[in-house]
Design a protein around this nucleic acid. Structure first.
Lengths: 180, 180
DNA sequence: ATCAGCATGTAAGGCGTTACATGATTCA
DNA sequence: TGAATCATGTAACGCCTTACATGCTGAT
């Protein structure tokens, strides 16, 4: 497996539960996962091809008579081992890029009003995303007894907790800036 | 300026206050900025060269008689305009990659204890980083009256607030997992 | 009939990291 | 004397995004 290509692990993690097409994988990533990891078709399809060559996944052609060709991928034992190995490694890269904070840090190059505006833009985006996460949370609360849903739930609460902290900070930051 | 290369703006933001060498810029980024943006020599030096060609910065050779050659860069009016333009654009990419959350999301592929361990690793890292941020905060509180320090201070409190939210979440997540 | 969604892929190119190469200075 | 820090840069390489190319299906 490619050394630093985390998309491989995302794919293996998703395939651990069920066989999926590349398109399905993209849809899953665009759901709750997108709050802490992203992926595009341009990275998913090549990754699937390479992982098939190295034996981590295998193809299962579902012809669905009449439908367009659709390739279901299935995780192999080797793939499961790779997934488990990764879970057992301590190292985890949490790589955060906040362009909003960059703009705020350099806010002194413009008037105070510009910095305030940028905080407001951020606040609006966070509110929208938080609303989405809260819907995920409600849906997950109904099925918490099911295997694995506890893990999905915890990542969603992580998002909610941090987004709520963002909003509190926005309120304080705006007051602080306005007052000075 | 390169369309999506944010390192250019980091450099311009830093040069807005004072002339710096590439080495200095790297040190600044490795300080408080590193909590929301990162940069390596391999990106800084080429960016400086290109920005000099396009007129955003210019060289000021400081020979310091006897010392090794040291290139001080100075921001131009064009550079200041580019910086201000960026600050005035609403769009800000806040791109977060939490490998820890990825591992937690797929935690069901291993025993519960592995997920707990991964939360603990995360917790330890966050505690260390939080301690560093608190030192920055204390130092900044002494000089809040100085121009621009308010902006540095706000980004540091942003980090502290989110890291504290992480820690609270870690406590709850561990209890939640242990209980089920 | 047309548009959104399903479905797979390639190509170009940008961004960025790591490692390497070089050498001076300063401090223990 | 040796290690750490100062200081600049290049090379190789990998990852990823965006845009493009293609075509079917199902709903309005």
């Amino acid at each position: 497996m490619a050394k630093d290509r985390k998309i491989d692990l995302v794919i293996l993690g998703l395939l651990f539960h069920e066989d999926l097409t590349g398109y399905d994988i993209k849809k899953r990533i665009d759901g709750a996962i997108s709050f802490f990891w992203k992926g595009s078709f341009g990275s998913i399809y090549p990754a699937l091809s390479e992982m098939e060559k190295s034996g981590l996944v295998k193809k299962r052609r579902a012809v669905d008579s009449g439908r367009r060709e659709k390739i279901l991928y299935h995780i192999t034992d080797e793939g499961i081992n790779a997934l488990k190995e990764w879970l057992n490694v301590e190292q985890a890269a949490n790589d955060l890029k906040y362009e909003t904070m960059l703009k705020l840090y350099f806010g002194g190059a413009e008037e105070k009003g510009i910095a305030l505006k940028n905080i407001c833009y951020f606040e609006e985006q966070v509110k929208k995303d938080l609303a989405i996460l809260q819907v995920y949370q409600k849906n997950l609360e109904k099925v918490l007894d099911k295997k694995d849903h506890i893990y999905y739930y915890l990542t969603v609460t992580f998002g909610i907790d941090t987004y709520e902290a963002y909003l509190k900070w926005c309120g304080r930051a705006k007051k602080y800036l306005e007052a000075c």
